[in-house]
Amino acid sequence: MVDKLLEVKNLRVELQTKDGVVPVIDDLSFDLDYGESLSFVGESGCGKSMTALALMGLLPEKVGRIASGSIKFEGRQLANASSEDLRKIRGNEISMIFQEPMTSLNPVLSVGEQISEVLRLHQKMSVNSAWKRAEDLLDAVNIPDPKRRVHDYPFQMSGGQRQRVMIAMALACEPKILIADEPTTALDVTVQAQIFGLLKDLQTKTGTSIILITHDMGAVAQMARKMIVMYAGRPCEIGEVAQVIKTPQHPYTTGLISCVPHLDDAIIDANNRLSEIPGIVPSLREFGSNKCLFASRCKHQMEQCRAERPVLAQFSNKQAFACWKREIIDAG
């Protein structure tokens, strides 16, 4: 049997906090195929970035650990693999673009040095050929005049250009998986459109799989085919993007879609209100308790929600969600 590119099963990640051990990712399973794009959606504090860090083996040392479950990358077990093994994969076969391009680039090295470093380490390229390749990569991410700009330092570039440098660096070794953690949050919409266009282009050219982490449903609709909605460390809805956006089943997904004013919404009257999800994400202390963590914010909540954690159950062949209301929703 051919191994899946990435197969995550019952992943549980625990953080050591002063209130004890809390599961910031609680029973997450998904898989990713070659050339596929998957998106994680949810508010901050719901475990989206933690998932990415767990995949990369970059959980905060001594504080975070993978408690149980498995992460298989082309059949190789990544959960609790040695840091040496992880280092070979990281930046080489799985790489990541971080949210803040200013703080994640080294301010005292030129962008050329930073890109070529990846190539020298992972591909054992010579200094000269790595530098040459860095120029090509800058060209591939549409930075004008790459021969000159490769000597620039991050502060000499605009936000969008820095994000392109990050992408160039992440793509240097032609990874099989590219994880993009809110890659456009700090950028203008026009620049965001360019970055998305660039990522899509590169995906078609190189066949890289993309994991996009975002809170923007519009970005999901445009960039991904599959999506996972996370709430308080738990997956609450998984499915095909088109289907989930059209017929969201979990009340949290419905809320996330309708609480944002979208540009393609019709203008109704002057005083229309947005539908709200009241309250905020529960504190870490509540994570892991055997109940629906969304219950306190949910207008459908009932007794069972506070007594038992809902299980993720298949809704149709392309959609699954975790909610006790499903029978009632099913009934209409």
Binding site: Q194, D201, D216, G218, A221, Q222, D264
Partner: peptide, 26 residues
């Protein structure tokens, strides 16, 4: 128009390359 086109829409996957070409310069 460019600004409005650049916003990701919910319903269809709009062709972002068009915006990208228009806005290739900053």
């Amino acid at each position: 128009k460019t600004l409005l086109n650049a916003v990701p829409k919910l319903d269809v996957a709009l062709d972002v390359t068009e915006v990208q070409n228009q806005m290739s310069k900053s």
